[in-house]
């Protein structure tokens, strides 16, 4: 990812900042000029909760440049609780531990590095959801 593109997309990458359509009220991610559901323009910024479930997944053994250090790693289609489907790496688990329907939550992690001297790109990934223990009565 170029330094300029890394910079332009930082808000959506760091914290899943998308939009919610003012006309049909659907959540939209990534943000775009026109609502994909009703084709109306000018959307309102909306930050996703970061919670979702694994819709499908695969394991990457032969990664693109910049991702070599992390291979093999699981990549999933995550259906966010708000509706949008996001393609993202899963983290903090072994590829064998992934299952369809697994509840996940967004974390901000290192996505790639341009060698030892280049910029570090941070982005959303998803991990198995950590549940808080019930409050003792």
């Amino acid at each position: 990812m170029s330094v300029a593109r890394t910079w332009r997309t930082r808000r959506q990458r760091y914290s899943l900042v998308g939009e919610r359509c003012e006309y049909c009220h659907n959540a939209i991610f990534p943000p775009r000029d026109v609502c994909p559901h009703c084709a109306e323009p000018a959307q309102k910024e909306y930050t996703m909760s970061g919670r979702g479930t694994v819709y499908s997944y695969t394991t990457v053994f032969d990664p693109p440049a910049g991702f070599e250090a992390y291979a093999p790693y699981p990549v999933a289609l995550v259906k966010l609780d708000e509706g949008p489907m996001v393609t993202a790496q899963l983290t903090d688990l072994d590829p064998d531990d992934v299952r369809i329907g697994m509840p996940v939550e967004m974390v901000t992690r290192k996505l790639s590095e341009q060698g030892d001297e280049g910029v570090i790109t941070y982005s959303y990934k998803f991990r198995e959801r950590l549940e808080r223990q019930a409050v003792a009565a």
């Binding site: 760091y14 992390y70 790496q89 983290t91 992690r109 570090i120």
Partner: peptide, 12 residues
């Protein structure tokens, strides 16, 4: 983990 550093841990 491989994809963690002081920035990502600070964010969480």
């Amino acid at each position: 983990g491989l994809d963690e550093d002081t920035a990502t841990m600070s964010i969480e």
